[in-house]
């Protein structure tokens, strides 16, 4: 389509810019807030240009924490990182293997197995939270990384994604590798895995962010402050009972919490987009 209407173009850009501003302004505000001291924020006249307290706020948040919570953000970030990585990697492992089984092996009740996996899509953590909590508690996994990660690994999204991808791989490729003397495992390792790289990247990005942003589950099963994740940490900093909220530290923590997902997206973006629109075989 060839069009040359300057006004229409201007309007389009204006709409876009407006959208960006609406979405980005709170983020900008958080970043700004993390560069002032508490007094400046509390008196309600926080300037929209950066202040000079960043060098104070960031080290304090990272290694000391809030005045009341007294929990260094570095530790929380470590917990969140373990949880997010655990969920992302665990999910990829489980789902690529189960998709491999469902697509390439003929066994009795294969369809049933697939449908059982599929049905779990309709049961997110929030729905099955009580039984899951009960099981994790009975297994003595409260306040452990295993307890944080394991219940969230099992889900059907990844299996479905890999299954759809595997179905697009021509059967002849499997047959060619059979004739080339590659067994099931070698076909998986030498052919399927390299071809799935972009899908894996896409799933990793989605699941890393999913894991990083978990709130309800870690809130339920962690009681020790040393096991807290950063999302819980922010919440704790904001709700204080008998003192002023240290907004500058809360905002600093929020900015720090945004960082890893942003980095993951930036560095894996190219692969990620390719994985979602992959058509070339």
């Amino acid at each position: 389509m060839v069009e040359n209407r300057p006004f229409a173009q201007f309007m389009a850009y204006l709409t876009l810019a407006l959208g960006v501003v609406i979405v980005a302004f709170p983020v900008y505000l958080a970043i700004m807030a993390s560069t002032f001291d508490a007094a400046t924020i509390i008196n309600g006249n926080m300037p929209l240009v950066p202040g000079d307290q960043a060098a104070v706020n960031y080290p304090r948040a990272l290694f000391y924490g809030g005045v009341h919570a007294r929990e260094p953000v570095a530790g929380m970030m470590f917990n969140s990182m373990i949880m997010a990585l655990g969920i992302a990697i665990g999910k990829i492992l489980i789902s690529i293997l189960s998709a491999f089984a469902v697509v390439y092996f003929k066994f009795p009740f294969r369809k049933t197995a697939f449908w059982i996996i599929f049905i779990t899509l309709m049961l997110p953590v929030e729905v099955r939270i009580y039984p899951t909590y009960k099981i994790v508690a009975d297994l003595g996994l409260l306040d452990t990384y295993t307890g944080l990660v394991m219940p969230l690994i099992a889900s059907a999204t990844g299996t479905l994604l890999f299954r759809q991808f595997f179905m697009t791989i021509p059967d002849e490729l499997l047959e060619a590798s059979k004739i080339d003397g590659a067994g099931a495992f070698r076909f998986f390792k030498d052919t399927l895995l390299p071809l799935s790289m972009t899908t894996i990247a896409a799933l990793f990005v989605i699941q890393f962010i999913y894991g990083w942003n978990q709130y309800l589950w870690p809130l339920l099963i962690t009681t020790k402050s040393s096991m807290q994740t950063i999302v819980i940490g922010i919440k704790k900093m904001i709700t204080t009972t008998d003192a002023l909220t240290e907004w500058q530290i809360a905002m600093t923590t929020a900015v720090l919490a945004m960082l890893p997902p942003v980095l993951v997206v930036i560095f894996m973006q190219r692969l990620f987009v390719k994985g979602l629109v992959e058509t070339e075989k």
């Binding site: 002849e172 490729l173 047959e175 060619a176 059979k178 003397g181 030498d190 052919t191």
Partner: peptide
């Protein structure tokens, strides 16, 4: 198939 001492050429080539 691998032990039959055969080689096959497919219609869609089936190259890796």
């Amino acid at each position: 198939p691998a032990d039959r001492d055969i080689a096959m050429v497919f219609q869609n080539y089936a190259l890796y």
